[in-house]
Design a protein around this nucleic acid. Structure first.
Lengths: 215, 215
DNA sequence: GGAAGAAGTTTCCACCGTTCACATGGGACG
DNA sequence: CGTCCCATGTGAACGGTGGAAACTTCTTCC
């Protein structure tokens, strides 16, 4: 901890103008949602935690919704990156598809605040996901892994989009139930347990997706 | 329109005390959520729509959250009833399980306001679902239909709870995506389309669930 | 008919989102 | 080096919200 600490952050920025308030606001939002729940998210409390007045955020975000949109976009970027990372560990189509699903659920469990904002009932307008193939196009990754599996003759024939939607539904449902704590009949569920659940469920669906080679 | 209209409601109730405010508040909440979205739900606007002062609701609900809990409980009752109705139309285990899932998705699409409240990120405390076998125990119906399928030798062996959880994840994910309008790349999705999607997805999962008799 | 209590109203408080006029300080340019 | 500009942060103000407390009005029951 050999920091000469004029300010606590890494780069020495005793700047009056806070250095990077935008980032601080995003972080404060995520922390607040994680600690107190989504309902407790108020622009004023976020500003308070960032150490500025309640009007300062309006220099960086037009709106409370604009802040949430920024959080959601960041979330999609991170999620897509995680999916790419995990999918790279496998070569077989079924392995890659399973990793894709597990990554989705793990992202949700490890970044519940991001996940809630990304898929919550907010947003008057659709959150405009980036272009296909971009760094936020997680659904594209899913569709691709399915068409690849079909081309390799491992997955059953059929329109890839409905099949991809089925996979998405499964992992999104599990993620939602975990994040919103609907499964906690007995104790909080750990990340490791979530991974086990995700693998288990993905494999079951995979059985229905594969050509009949018997498992 | 042969109504002698002292009050607009069906039963003539010029009663000062509004007749049934509790019911009116629940209905106003649902209408408000459906029309303006969940974020627009305010106790004051609900009271306004019911034609009373903003403090009147506190005679019937301790809290804003208490009102939402009541909405959620009603939702669980209706959903469970719908599931029983549709499941009764089939006798085979796989048919009953499919109907169970389709009913879940249809309930969500036809009662989006209820669904959002039931599974939203609100509620500080778990919403205390009723006793197993009660008129709100929709998960019990699901588990039962799986154990019955196993006893009949139609479904694969294994712990029924994780299998049921997989089914729940699938239909819950599809419902969430539909209700929160995450699938509307091109136009709003109709109830009939939702039913088709639900059937399609349920059948795919069923393929993974069944014993290998080839489909 | 009169008391008790349920149901609705009024008033008040703290907090929130948002706006606007204002202060400030750092960077650009002479 | 000085000065001006403007992005960034401040303070006060407005209407809307959840909630508590004291008050009024209707109903019911003895």
């Amino acid at each position: 901890m050999a920091m000469r600490g004029t300010r606590k952050k890494t780069a020495e920025k005793p700047h009056y103008h806070h250095g990077d308030l935008r980032r601080a606001l995003l972080d404060a939002s995520l922390a607040l949602i994680s600690e107190e729940g989504f309902g407790a998210l108020s622009l004023r409390e976020v500003a308070r935690r960032a150490g500025v007045t309640h009007a300062a955020p309006y220099r960086h975000f037009e709106d409370k919704e604009a802040l949430l949109v920024a959080v959601a976009e960041e979330g999609f970027r991170v999620m897509t990156a995680r999916m790419k990372e995990r999918m790279a560990r496998e070569t077989s189509p079924e392995g890659r598809l399973a990793e894709c699903g597990v990554a989705y659920v793990l992202f949700a469990v490890e970044h519940p605040a991001h996940f809630r904002v990304m898929f919550g009932p907010h947003f008057t307008q659709p959150p405009k996901l980036g272009p296909p193939g971009g760094d936020t196009d997680s659904f594209g990754l899913l569709v691709d892994s399915i068409t690849q599996g079909q081309r390799a003759g491992v997955f059953r024939e059929g329109e890839p989009l409905p099949l991809a939607l089925t996979c998405w539904s499964l992992v999104h449902g599990l993620s939602s139930l975990l994040v919103d704590r609907k499964l906690e009949m007995s104790g909080v569920i750990t990340v490791a347990q979530a991974e086990t659940l995700a693998l288990e469920q993905t494999r079951l669906l995979l059985r229905g997706l594969m050509r009949a080679t018997s498992n």
